[in-house]
Amino acid sequence: MTRVWDVPVEDAAGVSAARSAAEEAAALAGLDAPRGADAVTVASELAANLVEHAGGGRLLVEAVPPVRPAGAHDAPVVQIAAVDHGPGTAETPAGRDFGTDGATGTPRDGHPAVRTLGSGLRVCHRVADSFALHAAPGRGTAAVARIGAAPVLPAQSAGPDAVRTGGINVPLGGAALSGDAWTAVRAGHLVTLMLADGLGHGPEAARASTAAVEALREVPELAPAAALRHLGEALRGTRGAAVALARLDTRTGRLLFAGLGNVGARLYTGGSWRTLLSRPGIVGVHRRAAPPETDLAWAPDAVLVLHSDGLPQRWTPPAGLRPPAVDPAVFCAVTVRDTFGPAAQVRDDTAVAALTTTPPDLS
């Protein structure tokens, strides 16, 4: 089930809690002792950065699918996301976002500005398999680091047609389990992104969404409508879930989308956003005919976003981010942060997942 450590970080006690969360997440992901220690180090540095530079914030720690969903590297990785509503970290130029390649330890775009990172963030940059950060003056900072069993090698990239996936999951009220879950699966040149929102909250909702994730992994090649039929059988006996799926064929550049229930979906291409519609229903509860699939063109600048109803339908895409160049998990983190603001609390389990083309310098 989707275990998320939602750690408020205001002082030294929050830093200690962040370290403990990373240690537990590393054990859940099956990391060995050295890589587990790396996860703890990254969590500690990001949490300390929140206290020192932002006046506090939150760390979201969980085991997630790999950023590049390829069969050769499909073990979960520990993702540590730090978000705040501070002034924008003083350790990077305002409004800039940086990504690093864990295989080489170099900035995504080769820009020397990564040297402006403070010592704590330089540690994250060096230790994590991938590290990305976006800072904007007066709005805050979002940083995402991932640590896996072993660094991702260039040969494990999905190639020039590669796509990246990422997501953020915020449980209601800081609960240990989220009723939302997302995953990405790959079958050759076919990549599917799915988000499932289990009915209600708590362990039973988490059991339903987890069943959807496990069922999709059994049939990564299926088109969305057929996959929803398979998930419908797999979720019988659970509360059921709202589910949206999108399968991208990287050879033909076509995206197929289908959904049942109130999982939101938007596609960005050509400078504008389009809403993708799901049909009413609950997967695993209501026996309905599979919904029709929406067939769309996938462009080099495309970004697909799926989100549970914890995020309002009228959410505004983050200003100042340049999809798909920004890490999709950072995009999701900024979306959640800016939607709810510094004082508001999420009103439900809230998950946001994104699929983007990999920039040429990371392919």
Rank of each mutant, 00 (worst) to 15 (best):
M194D: 06
A181I: 00
A13Y: 04
P154I: 02
A113P: 00
Q79M: 13
L195D: 08
L50Q: 06
G55H: 06
V9S: 04
A206T: 10
S157A: 04
V352T: 08
A82I: 14
G55A: 01
Q313F: 03
E91T: 08
T275V: 12
F257H: 07
L235V: 10
D129N: 14
V283R: 10
R164L: 12
P160W: 04
G56V: 02
T252P: 04
G86I: 06
L121H: 13
L177Y: 03
R254K: 11
L28Y: 08
W298P: 00
A103W: 08
T2L: 01
H53P: 01
D295W: 13
P328T: 02
L355Q: 07
V346Q: 05
E204M: 08
W298R: 04
V51Y: 10
T210Y: 10
I168M: 12
R146K: 07
G118A: 06
G56L: 08
G310I: 07
C332S: 09
G102F: 12
T104S: 15
A325I: 12
A205H: 02
W182Q: 04
D109A: 11
G188F: 15
T339G: 02
E10D: 05
A344K: 09
V4S: 10
L172E: 14
G102W: 11
G120L: 12
L121N: 08
E204W: 07
E23M: 10
L195H: 13
W315S: 07
H286N: 07
A90E: 06
G240V: 07
G270I: 12
H286S: 07
T106A: 06
T350W: 14
R217S: 10
R58Y: 15
V283P: 00
A242T: 00
L248S: 02
A158S: 15
A145R: 04
A302F: 10
P69M: 04
A351Y: 03
A181N: 09
A258Q: 03
G95Y: 13
P107R: 03
T294M: 12
A132L: 05
L195Q: 14
R35V: 01
T104P: 12
V219Q: 15
T294G: 00
L311W: 11
D361E: 15
V336K: 02
H111Y: 05
G341S: 01
A333N: 00
L46C: 02
D338I: 01
V352F: 13
P137E: 07
D32W: 02
R239L: 15
D295I: 09
V123R: 11
N169D: 06
G110S: 00
S278V: 01
A81C: 03
